[in-house]
Design a protein around this nucleic acid. Structure first.
Lengths: 141, 141
DNA sequence: GTGTTTGCAAAGTGTTTGCAATTTA
DNA sequence: TAAATTGCAAACACTTTGCAAACAC
């Protein structure tokens, strides 16, 4: 039987790539985060998932890890709701739908949407990112 | 001497217009908020201003008032930073610059900026608002 | 071994709530 | 006087921190 091939999606490789020690906790969280498709998670939610998956990890470590991953460019922070930080596993240039009722976040697929006539940044500042959030209300509620 | 003319900017008129009792606290806060041009305030900041102005009002009342004003359409809530709510006295359709370094918020003047090719909202939802935030980093820092 | 990472519990921040006292109409 | 509003202090949710024990290299 062959050793499984290491893909780039592999947790160990990801951590090595950004110079973070592959600890048990980081590997488990990376698996949860990058295991399947793009995700938007909060620290609490990810901690809950870890517990369900039988991974022993403290909430403090989840917070630390999410921030380390964000600094390393593996995640992107999205602010749409006061008092709640989302981390997006899709770090490419894209925008979001936000469901006001449920607090759910969803990537806007494709890159159809665009912002035109961007104003010049104020004197002494430069643009670090342009965020577009389309806020949605559920019909018939 | 003539009685001063009541403009729409007047606190009392504003409160009457939206059916809120013109209490001492609400009048004072309305003065601070709408007294001069467009503003972006946090609850804490407004509470601080009130104290400086010699207005006795509790922080809880500032929070209540900001939310009541928002519900009444006198203010608009802007979320750009986790753990900090801004209230904008400009309730017309517009977008924002956000200075990441200082946490300051600034209206984007004019309506030059526009979002094109807005995607259709997901099934069962409709668009409540489109927010664009241009995040800025101060040069040379 | 040495420096990094973790977990815990405590502290911190910003916000909301319950309720008696006060104010408005 | 009846209903709305306020202030206080306590409760809250979420996040960060300090430090000793555990771990990775």
């Amino acid at each position: 039987m062959m050793k499984p091939v290491r893909t780039f999606a592999d947790g160990l490789a990801r951590l090595r790539n950004v110079g973070l020690r592959p600890t048990r906790q980081r590997l488990a969280l990376a698996d949860l985060l990058f295991g399947e498709g793009d995700r938007h998670v909060t620290a609490e939610a990810l901690h809950g998932e870890a517990e369900l998956a039988g991974v022993r990890v403290s909430l403090a470590t989840v917070y630390n890890t999410l921030h380390q991953f964000t600094e390393a460019g593996l995640l992107r922070e999205v602010v749409v709701d006061a008092g709640c930080c989302y981390f997006d596993t899709n770090v490419s240039d894209h925008h979001h739908f936000f469901f006001e009722g449920t607090g759910r976040l969803q990537d806007i697929a494709g890159s159809s949407l665009s912002v035109t006539d961007l104003p010049a940044p104020p004197e002494g500042a430069s643009i670090s990112r342009v965020d577009v959030v389309i806020r949605l209300r559920e019909d018939g509620k």
